[in-house]
Nucleic acid binder design. Structure first.
Length: 230
DNA sequence: GTCCAGGGCCGTT
DNA sequence: AACGGCCATGGA
């Protein structure tokens, strides 16, 4: 049975570095805004949505100069809906962005340094308490915006785990614990956030190229370790 | 035209 | 606890 650290090694050999979820540093330097907030917003906008649609919405927010905590917390909900419309589910997402931004503004004065400079599980519980932020969105914010060591489980990860298969229940928490426990025994603590980051990105690449809904098993780098293939 | 994408909530079993 | 319907756009 393949284990997560072997999965990581094989996928990295097959696909190389993914440098996923890059932040638009130049925009945020020019406008004196926090690039991590763009990742927070992206994490909500990408809920069950293809990334190109999210990019269009983020571009709209940038061109309107409102991609920061204070503006999203206070701006008119209708206007926000219009800007994020390309990302779909815009009524829910506008509500979620507004509530989260208002929370960050009132509780942390919009300072993400303060927000992220605490215990990981404390921040996670706070995010999950907000309506519209579930485990994957919370963990994406923690890992990709906060650079904190938590493994993100998405639909692709679940599908891969089901097909290999891995000998665990296919629930979010079980999969997350299984990956983290294993990787923690193979890498030093200070590397874990970048390992989790990279592995999640590699699984997405695998799922798009091979482990699709209609699988394309030739030539999958995991073929020799997978029970699914024909 | 059909399918589906980097989920989460809510109501029903 | 598990499952189904719902939310919406744009690209394949």
């Amino acid at each position: 049975m393949i284990r997560p650290h072997t999965l990581y090694k094989l996928l990295h050999e097959a696909f190389g570095n993914q440098h996923w979820w890059p932040m638009d540093k130049s925009y945020h330097r020019r406008h004196h805004t926090d690039p991590r907030f763009e990742v927070v917003v992206g994490a909500i906008l990408t809920q069950n949505t293809a990334w190109p649609n999210v990019e269009k919405a983020l571009d709209n927010l940038k061109q309107s100069r409102v991609l920061d905590v204070e503006n999203l917390a206070t701006m008119d909900r209708e206007e926000l809906c219009l800007l994020i419309k390309p990302s779909g589910f815009f009524n829910q997402k506008a509500e979620r962005l507004g509530k989260l931004s208002a929370y960050l503004s009132t509780t942390y004065q919009g300072d993400l340094d303060v927000f992220f400079a605490r215990d990981l599980h404390e921040i996670r519980a706070e995010l999950l308490f907000l309506s519209g932020i579930g485990p994957e969105t919370a963990d994406s914010i923690l890992l990709y915006a906060g650079n904190l060591p938590i493994f993100v489980v998405d639909a692709y990860t679940k599908r891969l785990c089901a097909r290999l298969p891995l000998p665990i229940p296919l629930t979010y928490d079980e999969i997350q614990q299984y990956f983290e426990k294993n990787l923690q025994t193979h890498y030093p603590a200070h590397q874990l956030s970048s390992i989790y980051n990279e592995l999640h990105a590699l699984i997405v690449t695998l799922a798009k190229q091979h482990c699709r809904k209609k699988p394309v098993c030739e030539p999958c780098p995991l073929k020799m370790h997978c029970a699914f293939g024909p």
